[in-house]
């Protein structure tokens, strides 16, 4: 797609180590995410998947060893949907605190339609269900032009059809020269190759 598709990774983590409460969540972990790759981080509850993602996206800056190089700005969708209950889905996207773009009303409406929220654009979000909140958040995937997506459990509270659609979206993003790093307990059913990173924690004696 571009120069970076050939050589330089979109995200590079160099020998990351993290200790939490006397447990070594990961040690000397290196990871290079290239364009066209889909990475799934696996591990039991408490294995450090979310901690790793927060380090990769830059929310955690201290308390770990190692280095993360981010040549491109990633799009990070966390555990919390970042949807304000008092704003409508349209307002939520228009005034999103992640100031990556100025979106037109048409762009926002089409993104909401693609996550199945057509007709819900103007209702206040507290009348929406938890899954619909997550869908408002997923609509950002259609709006953003970030090449690297960091997704923390994107399928939480999403129905079966929505999960299929999201997986198709991930595959098409990867096919278009993007990259995805995600955590999920589900087995991915996508058309592209899935690189897996398994976190196994060890107790330090």
């Amino acid at each position: 797609m571009s120069i970076s598709a050939i050589g330089a990774p979109l995200l590079e983590a160099q020998s990351l180590s993290l200790l939490r409460g006397g447990r070594e969540l990961f040690c000397d972990l290196s990871l290079a995410v290239h364009a066209g790759q889909l990475w799934q981080i696996e591990g039991a509850n408490g294995a450090g998947k979310t901690s790793l993602l927060r380090i990769l996206c830059g929310l955690s800056r201290y308390g770990f060893e190692g280095k993360v190089v981010r040549p491109v700005a990633p799009l990070y969708l966390g555990h919390q949907p970042a949807v304000k209950a008092l704003l409508s889905p349209r307002e939520n996207l228009r005034w999103h605190l992640n100031g990556e773009g100025l979106y037109s009303a048409e762009q926002i409406d089409s993104a909401l339609a693609r996550v199945g929220l057509c007709g819900y654009e103007d209702v206040t979000s507290h009348t929406l269900s938890a899954g619909q909140h997550r869908r408002v958040n997923l609509a950002r995937l259609f709006l953003s032009d970030a090449r690297l997506w960091l997704l923390d459990e994107p399928f939480t509270a999403i129905d079966a059809q929505g999960v299929d659609e999201t997986q198709a979206l991930l595959a098409s993003h990867v096919a278009a020269g993007g990259a995805v790093v995600m955590t999920s307990h589900q087995k991915l059913q996508v058309t592209c190759e899935v690189h897996t990173l398994k976190l196994v924690q060890s107790l330090i004696s």
Partner: peptide
């Protein structure tokens, strides 16, 4: 609700 996380990354 996680909005602040997004603000940090802006």
């Amino acid at each position: 609700d996680g909005s602040l996380e997004q603000l940090m990354l802006a």
